[in-house]
């Protein structure tokens, strides 16, 4: 067991900002914070179980057909997530729409299976999956937070009791910067965030020297 496998996904090898995998859902579902959290939880679940299963089966799956095998394993877990969300959280299910079945082709999951789970022990693979999944959720939430706060002046969370789950931000709610919540704004924001992370990691490297 190696605790480094758990923490590397959070910052050093953050799937969204550093390795740049799984871009489609990252930009597609981040119009509201709750959708980002739902997507992150879905990916975390699928990643966790597929990493464990692939790591457990790594000596049984023939090398030449490993990719189709991985895809079938991943697709089975995605189907479970789809059915569970459809039954218990229909509003998130419809908000995620086509991006939910598309978790199957999310490069993060196949990428971790290929790069990590088929070479490492079950426990390490599970830790790797948790780290990567949480890192993915964090970056998704960050993007969603920026887009929702500036784009529509709200923060949408879970509805609890009388609270309907929507926080309104005074000035921005009246005059939102609409473009940030649109497609173009997502791409622009992603570009600037990526540049920021590049600048940040370069600066950190400079300090380390």
């Amino acid at each position: 067991m190696n605790i480094k496998e758990l923490t590397k996904g959070l910052f050093k090898e953050n799937p969204t900002f550093i390795i740049m995998l799984g871009m489609c859902p990252t930009l597609g579902v981040t119009t509201q914070v709750i959708n980002a959290l739902g997507m992150g939880a879905g990916v975390l679940f699928v990643l966790f179980f597929s990493n464990i299963l692939i790591s457990a089966l790594k000596n049984i799956i023939p090398n030449s057909i490993r990719i189709p095998c991985y895809i079938v394993i991943i697709a089975s877990f995605v189907t479970i997530v789809e059915m569970v969300l459809h039954a218990f959280a229909p509003s998130i299910y419809s908000a995620l729409g086509v991006y939910l079945p598309l978790i199957v082709v999310n490069c993060i999951i196949l990428g971790r299976a290929e790069a990590f789970a088929n070479k490492n022990s079950i426990v390490d693979s599970a830790l790797d999956a948790i780290g990567m999944g949480v890192g993915f959720t964090m970056s998704l939430t960050l993007i969603a937070l920026i887009r929702e706060v500036f784009g529509s002046g709200t923060i949408t969370l879970f509805a609890i009791g009388n609270f309907n789950g929507v926080l309104k931000i005074p000035v921005l709610y009246q005059w939102p910067v609409r473009v940030i919540s649109l497609a173009a704004g997502a791409l622009l924001l992603m570009g600037y965030l990526k540049a920021f992370f590049q600048w940040f990691s370069e600066k950190k490297k400079g300090v380390a020297k």
Binding site: M20, L182, A183, A184, G185, A186, L187, L188, L189, M190, G191, Y192, K194, A195, Q198
Partner: peptide, 12 residues
């Protein structure tokens, strides 16, 4: 990559 994303944003 960052400039590619920003160009794509302007195209969008």
């Amino acid at each position: 990559v960052p400039i590619a994303f920003i160009s794509a944003g302007l195209m969008a």
